[in-house]
Nucleic acid binder design. Structure first.
Lengths: 331, 331
DNA sequence: TTGTACGCGTTATCAG
DNA sequence: CTGATAACGCGTACAA
């Protein structure tokens, strides 16, 4: 059994390699229908399919796009890929995914490995605001950054509207005449995104002379953490306070605690927060929440990347994906 | 600027391409330290790195492993990839991920695309129990199936212990002298996994003459669905009943409903179920739950795949990953 | 309309 | 220890 190459097909079909190659690449303009059908037939018979590596070596087009995510095991990253893959598929690209596992060194390694793959484009959910490798890669192949902004304003990016989203929730809270806002978040200083979320909410609170308190919690599983939160809620109950959490777990935890304390939502206390898992419509009452459109971040990133690859649009730009505010009954 | 190839490096270093190639592939056995250092130096200076496509074309080793997941946007699939990627990285493989998006035709297409990529191995979370493409690919390159069993017993696979896990929970329930078990699940017949979960629990119930009821729910967001469940719980309260849910959303929903009804856990009613998001330790009381070790499914799959690639172990085998039973205070 | 011949960047076989 | 040289499988001027 001789291995199946374009040459073999040519022999079987009684034509030359060039003709087969033309057929494969859709150059039918100058090809007699006879030979075309002959080729089609033998290709089907032999079940031949061309070797991508050889094609790539020749054309420099691998059909591959690299995607380095911060943490594959995180819902956020995987939705990113999900959205990006969809668009990639529509444009006949395949996505080579690498996981940084929240480790800046692993990200570095991943990037280096991707560099040698003749990628046509690259999407990065960056661990840092800048780096030598970013520079090198972004200057070599079309690159788009997602989720986190970088220092270099020349690089196109797609991010989420953290400030605006909590700002909107803030407006909602203000319109319901709350007097206090308690924001529960994991440590804020380590993440620009968290900071933006705090600022968005705080801005409205300040503007409306609503009292704003930030509660930073860390070890959620600790009894003491829970106890601390229980006390906070007990004190806040009936004071026209609204609780806002910066992620889904915290939101669920607070919902639990409020029920445990016996307070009514929203009569005794308001509750809202980020929902990463899509469950806030199932509770009683259904929770007003912010839903990040991570999928769109992925699709938009891939779209702008493909624009760049085809030079449809080479302008540096930062796209902001609006979060969805699900207004329900907890505020 | 002439592009950087092995030939260019050779010229600069004053040696031949062959020598450079030897250097690149670590064949230092027969190489003077002098030339070795010379090469090392110029490679660093030029910042040269070899072209993978050319290497692959020559060696047939792409360093690529394909992974087709059922639904990238699903936590289960992404954890699978996460685990697999980790092992792949340790062995210097890269993972080419494709998303079937729960569509059998898209899976087919993905598989066909992967076929042309000179993959060294393939992992599939299959949409069906068998198919022509599975046969073709599995007979061509080392392949491992994950999460779902296939008809062909020759194919290695890694799955989760659905029956055993719920069976264990059943034992726990029985040991606490419950008289009724209410299992809440999404439609069972469409999924072998769900069926196994039901059967595992039912088996224990039957063996211990515990009354077993299966409640299938579909449209969770419907008011009527919720109403139906509320009624069920009201009736069950105080009858020594334990509720078990087959996924995380349902578990959360039931927790909510039980609290709404005013029943105490576990005094008035028991509660347990699958936890996909790791939140059951945060509730009050902390919930006894089943945690699937999806990550391990991914790592084990990649390990057996790599064994197959290196022919360390070519036996057909089905690995079963045990779920973790988190015994807490709700049963 | 089709075929010839060369090159893409690398590895491997063989001499030397 | 090192260097020619021939593949790997394909695309494409150029020629016919």
């Amino acid at each position: 059994m001789t291995k199946l190459t374009i040459g073999e097909v040519a022999k079987q079909a009684g034509v030359s390699k060039s003709t087969i190659s033309r057929y494969l690449n859709g150059n039918f303009k100058k090809m007699s229908p006879v030979t075309r059908q002959k080729i089609e037939k033998t290709i089907k018979e032999l079940d031949y399919h061309p070797n991508r590596q050889a094609q790539t070596l020749k054309t420099k087009k691998s059909g591959l796009i690299g995607f380095v995510v911060a943490d594959m095991a995180n819902m956020y990253s995987s939705r990113l890929i999900s959205g990006a893959s969809k668009v990639a598929r529509e444009h006949n690209y395949q996505v080579l995914t690498m996981d940084s596992v929240n480790d800046i060194e692993l990200e570095h390694d991943s990037l280096l490995k991707l560099r040698d793959q003749a990628l046509e484009g690259l999407i990065i959910q960056p661990m840092s605001r800048n780096s030598q490798v970013y520079e090198e890669l972004a200057s070599t192949i079309p690159t788009v950054f997602v989720d986190r902004v970088t220092d270099n304003k020349q690089w196109p990016g797609v991010v989420v509207d953290n400030f605006d989203a909590t700002h909107q929730i803030g407006e909602l809270i203000a319109s319901h005449h709350y007097k206090n806002v308690i924001m529960v978040s994991e440590p804020v200083s380590v993440s620009q995104a968290r900071l933006n979320r705090v600022n968005g909410l705080k801005a409205v609170a300040d503007a409306n002379s609503i009292n704003f308190e930030l509660v930073e919690v860390d070890e959620l599983q600790h009894e003491s953490t829970r106890g601390q939160l229980v006390n906070k809620i007990k004190k806040a109950t009936g004071t026209r306070a609204a609780v806002f959490t910066s992620n889904s777990r915290l939101l669920m935890l607070m919902l639990q605690i409020i029920e445990e304390v016996g307070a009514e939502i929203p009569t005794d206390i308001g509750l809202s927060g980020y929902d990463d898992w899509n469950w806030t419509s199932l509770t009683n009452p259904p929770l007003t929440s912010i839903e990040q459109d991570t999928l769109s971040v992925g699709t938009e990133a891939m779209k702008t990347l493909i624009d760049r690859i085809s030079h449809t649009n080479d302008e540096p730009n930062l796209k902001v994906i609006r979060s969805q505010i699900n207004i329900r009954k907890s505020i």
